[in-house]
Design a protein around this nucleic acid. Structure first.
Lengths: 185, 185
DNA sequence: TCTGATGCTGTCATAAATGTCCTAATTGCA
DNA sequence: TGCAATTAGGACATTTATGACAGCATCAGA
């Protein structure tokens, strides 16, 4: 059960901590108090409900836990078309990056729950992408499926670099659906 | 998630606070209300989009062009080294992107005041980068210097796509310093 | 040209919400 | 355990929403 402190909420809402405490005291935001001095805690779901009730924007790092967005980073249209079709049919929201630049911008802007990553794209190093994701707070929780025709050795290296799962080419529909479901349900 | 109050917007636009509230009520400016009495907050990106829609000038403190950061997007280390050395000597803070992915992530994360862009990088379309910058509120005011060995025709096309200035290869130090100073002082 | 209608903005007063300090207590972390 | 960081709460300062009213353009029609 993930909870938030008043300070965290203050930062997320870009509002003063004092104000958050007042929201809770007033009952506008549901929370509970710790036994000590009565420090406040708010459950994430209550916070999100609160944001929705008031038409306030939901910070991407919270929405990220339950979003269905998948970003496909691959330069071969034939591959991206197939992946998109398969994942859309499963109810995922799929966007495609055809090159490294799109990959970088869409990763940060859309903050997908999962990325499928082609390791060998021209002008771009897949391992660099893995390293970036694992060391960048905004996207550190992104699940990564590496898709590659490279040998087992490289795929193993990808796992060590932070890939959650690897998928050798060629793969079939069920394999793809399997790994995605395994990672983001 | 950075937000602005009505008062801050009023100062930025040199307009009365009452007027800002009316813009929001009327729907001209997208915002949301805090739960208390309904105090308004506007996300910075929405505000910038609003300014653009109405052809209003973007305050420098929001445009981020009061910083001295320059992003060099080029895959040739020989070139990036030279540019970095020259611009550092002029007091600019220089970061380098060796490929499209780095270019995309650093552009969004660092929000540089100026980008030097190599049009012809493997696995990445420079025109796509220009287009992205010009249609993305967070970076729309980034100055772009296109550096390319391509012919005049392509350089002209780059200008039309949104490049502020173009620089043919080869160029000398003074030319580079000249265009950068011209654009961000 | 004049007139009135219309719509946007500025001004003012007031009540309510939010921000700023402050200190002491709690909590997180090694 | 001990120390650093965070937090609650009061008191006070600042900002904000709102209604009412005035000024000022623009525009259509006489």
């Amino acid at each position: 059960m993930k909870t938030l402190t008043t300070g965290e909420i203050a930062k997320l809402c870009d509002v003063n901590l004092r104000t958050v405490i007042r929201w809770i005291d007033r009952g506008a935001l549901k929370g509970f108090k710790l036994p000590g001095r009565g420090n406040n805690r708010v459950m994430v779901e209550d916070f999100i409900a609160f944001l929705n009730e008031n038409g306030m924007p939901i910070p991407p790092e919270l929405a990220g836990d339950n979003n269905r967005r998948v970003l496909v980073i691959d330069d071969e249209p034939a591959i991206t078309r197939v992946i998109r079709r398969i994942l859309r049919a499963e109810g995922y929201e799929v966007s495609v990056a055809n090159d490294g630049f799109q990959g970088g911008t869409k990763l940060l802007q859309e903050q997908p729950a999962l990325v499928t990553l082609d390791l060998s794209m021209p002008g771009m190093d897949g391992f660099e992408v893995l390293e970036f994701i694992r060391k960048t707070p905004e996207v550190v929780h992104t699940r990564v499926v590496v898709i590659s025709a490279l040998g087992d050795q490289e795929l193993q290296r990808a796992k060590e670099a932070g890939a959650d799962l690897v998928l050798g080419k060629p793969f079939n529909n069920d394999q793809l659906i399997g790994v995605v479901k395994q990672l983001i349900g």
